[in-house]
Design a protein around this nucleic acid. Structure first.
Lengths: 224, 224
DNA sequence: CAATTCAGGATTGTCGACAATCCTGTGGCC
DNA sequence: GGCCACAGGATTGTCGACAATCCTGAATTG
């Protein structure tokens, strides 16, 4: 009989991994305020972990772009700026446009079925709250997430899903961008998937870029 | 008089920073072979540093995509695959195309002067070795680097220059892609800069995407 | 002889302590 | 009153050691 295994062996991830995920959630949801300074000893006490493991988590958060660290000074949560948000939209437009193009040329039956199923699910939820101006952020998120997965490009998937999307969610949570574009966005999603089904990469990319650019324009107008 | 300051204060970077940069160079240039396992104690002895500082460097290399780490197993240098190289091209096509579009709309006199100066410099070097099939990798690199800088989008700049380009250089060094596209690439560069000067974002993006796609096609043909 | 078990060695994950550096506020000086 | 120097406290960077985990290969068994 082996000794009681640590949490490490059970979950297949290290303590630093768990700290990283926990802190990532708190930063994204704003429980740790944007722009605020984070103290290593304070967090180490709070999570009852050593500073070493915590530093590892902080370093990963830095590589995610959620934290900024300066030598001998410490780490701060990035602050949410209008410029940063618009920059995010431009990069997403480029990458998700490419994801659509690739998804259209490399599509599999499984991907298409998944996309169709998701769209029907969203349609259902959409009808339930028809008329409300509230936009389902998770539904929109699902859509973009699945499209990127269907691109089959691991580098693209990693860049968007493991890096940029956390920043996207951070802006969504904290600037609370409820969008009145619900119905229009849904139709746009539908058209994008149709283009992917048809294997029309050019059109799929064009529609996705328009979709994201419209969302960006919407935000830009609201901020002024 | 203060005590002798550590290297830290002199260069404004930590020991882990220097280890990171050194190791990054060795991986990019292949002195640490692609696909090989890296041992923390071994490198710690070699650089006469503690394992802690070295682990920090390794973690940054992981976030650069040059290393893959698995819990309780260790780190390996990523291996160079045809698929990975082609994925890189697709992502670059999307991002650098957008960089061109942004550079065309946000161009400054300083950026334009810099681009022009660089182009003339390349032209000079080009004539010196006219006829040779050898393609100046650094010149091409300069070009793409400067264009991205001129985009003014910090997220885009960071993603390309501080992440993807190290992988690009790793493939260039180790798969030694001397390209016979020298003259054609130079003309393409020239046309892209003209479009940026004219403020034509659509054209600038189109030309850059074609430029990168042609390079990708060239590599794809050579590999088969 | 092949497959399996299980110890030994090596490596990674985690921790606490020390030294170097930075920020703060207090005192002195012009 | 304003500016500068400077000490105190706190924080970060670095290090070595211990514990948990994984890989290797030899012994065992069918």
């Amino acid at each position: 009989m082996k000794a009681a295994p640590s949490q490490n062996a059970v979950t297949g991830q290290s303590l630093a991994d768990r700290l990283f995920e926990t802190l990532r959630g708190e930063i994204v949801e704003g429980r740790i305020a944007a722009g605020s300074k984070v103290s290593e000893p304070e967090l180490a006490r709070r999570f009852e972990a050593s500073r070493g493991s915590l530093r590892e988590a902080l370093m990963r958060l830095e590589s995610l772009g959620l934290l900024e660290r300066r030598v001998n000074v410490g780490a701060r949560v990035v602050d949410l700026t209008e410029r940063g948000l618009l920059e995010l939209y431009d990069v997403r437009e480029a990458l998700e446009g490419m994801a659509c193009r690739l998804a259209a040329s490399q599509r599999t039956d499984a991907d298409l079925a998944e996309l169709r199923r998701m769209l029907e699910h969203h349609e259902q939820q959409e009808e339930l709250r028809a008329g409300t101006a509230y936009f389902q952020p998770e539904g929109d998120f699902d859509f973009h997430f699945r499209i990127v997965q269907a691109s089959g490009n691991d580098l693209l998937i990693d860049t968007l899903c493991n890096r940029l999307y956390y920043r996207v969610r951070m802006y969504r949570y904290q600037l609370g961008m409820a969008s009145p574009r619900a119905q229009r966005a849904f139709r746009e999603h539908s058209h994008i998937i149709e283009a992917i089904e048809a294997g029309d990469g050019d059109l799929a990319e064009l529609l996705m870029r328009r979709h994201i650019r419209a969302s960006r324009q919407n935000i830009e107008n609201k901020l002024r």
